[in-house]
Simulated assay, not measured.
Amino acid sequence: MRTSYGFHLNESIPERLYVMESIGWGEAVDGSYGQDGMKRPGSGYLFQYTLFGEGAITVGGATYKVPKNHGFFVSIPSEHRYFYPPDGRKPWEFIWIRALGGAMSDYWQHFIRSFGHVASFRDDSEPIRLMWSMYHDAAEQGFRDKFRMSLRLFEWLLAFERIAEGLDRGSQPMPDSLQLAKRFMERHVGTPVSLDDIAAAAGISKHHFCKVFKMYTGVTPIHYLRKIRVEEAAGLLRNTGLAVEAISRQTGFDNVSYFGKVFRQYIGVSPTDYRKGLTNVYENRHLQIVD
């Protein structure tokens, strides 16, 4: 489920340690979404990566598109604004980290010199895999140890550094077996398929497939399948007059009540409300205490 996690520090933390201010997975669907870098409270360094759709950012006197598999580096506060584009037709889905401390300023300046404010990173690259890993850690157990948090952020920064220095060209490509599995799920978005079917398409055992798929994508195969089904359903809700029940069947859900439950988990509103245009960025901030 898309959500965000903020971290409140209940003690003074040495400046040499890295601190995660927030991490989240969100979505924007219309022009009401936008952030002005001079008006946001606090300070820090933000990296936001597009998972689906496209966003835009104005920084350094220029406006850039931020399509799928691209992310942007900005500091807060600074002169920038990122937003849902006026000509946007699809939801803009993204994951972000906002952090500070340590040598963040030096790293950020180096990354912007090396990559530019907006850069392309494969979804199976090490920095993106580490972002998902930290997101799931925040969801499952939080970061209640300031040293562990600092270590994870430093590892993430070094993953970008390896790419900047030419030591890693965006991580090893996703294995062919997983590419086959993803294509199989995308082709069968509207038909019932089991985990056994997907693993068979990948040509590897179910246990190994589940382990490797999550390692490369950050989510389970079933989560990925539900996600692409919900994306397909959202498109049909926006662009057709099909009844909700028909859309649920067409996107692989044989029970309209279950379809509504899953759709709400991913999008934040019911299919009917989404069609009416009531949806917005789905946020549910969880405050965690870091010792």
Rank of each mutant, 00 (worst) to 15 (best):
G116V: 04
S194V: 10
E126T: 12
D197R: 10
K206Y: 00
Y216R: 02
N280C: 09
V281F: 10
G37E: 05
P85V: 11
F47N: 02
R40T: 06
H70T: 13
V219I: 10
Y224G: 05
K146C: 11
F94P: 04
S125Y: 10
R187P: 01
F154R: 09
V219P: 00
E15D: 14
D137G: 11
P14C: 05
Y64C: 10
H136T: 10
Y258I: 00
H136G: 06
V66S: 12
G55F: 11
F154Q: 09
G61L: 07
G55C: 03
Y216S: 01
K211S: 07
N255R: 13
L237E: 03
M104W: 15
H70L: 04
S150P: 09
T217C: 02
F253C: 13
R275A: 14
P91C: 11
T251S: 03
G55A: 03
V269C: 09
L242R: 07
F184G: 14
R16A: 06
H117T: 08
V193W: 01
Q250T: 10
T58Q: 09
Q109A: 15
S12F: 12
F154T: 07
F72V: 01
V193Y: 01
A62C: 05
G44C: 04
F52Q: 10
F160R: 00
D176N: 08
E15W: 05
Y135H: 12
R98P: 00
Y64I: 14
G218V: 02
A139F: 05
T58I: 04
N239A: 03
G34P: 03
I163A: 03
L100R: 15
S120K: 13
H117G: 03
G102A: 14
D196I: 01
G26H: 14
A56G: 13
V19R: 15
I23H: 08
E27I: 13
S194C: 06
K227F: 12
H286L: 11
F184M: 06
F253H: 12
I163S: 03
D168V: 05
R275N: 09
N255Q: 05
L46V: 02
Q265P: 05
E93V: 15
D168L: 02
R264N: 09
P91G: 14
A103F: 02
H136M: 14
F47D: 00
Y18N: 12
I13S: 12
K214N: 02
D137P: 00
H80L: 06
S114A: 15
S177P: 00
H110G: 08
P175K: 02
G55H: 12
R98I: 14
F47H: 01
L130I: 09
G37H: 09
G24W: 05
K276C: 02
V230M: 02
R238A: 01
S133I: 07
S248I: 04
R122A: 15
N255E: 06
G101I: 09
Y135C: 07
A99I: 10
Y135E: 05
H207E: 07
G44S: 06
A181C: 08
F143H: 11
L158Y: 06
N284F: 07
L237M: 04
P85W: 08
F83G: 14
R183T: 13
N10E: 09
Q48K: 06
V19D: 03
V281C: 07
S12D: 15
E245M: 02
G142Y: 04
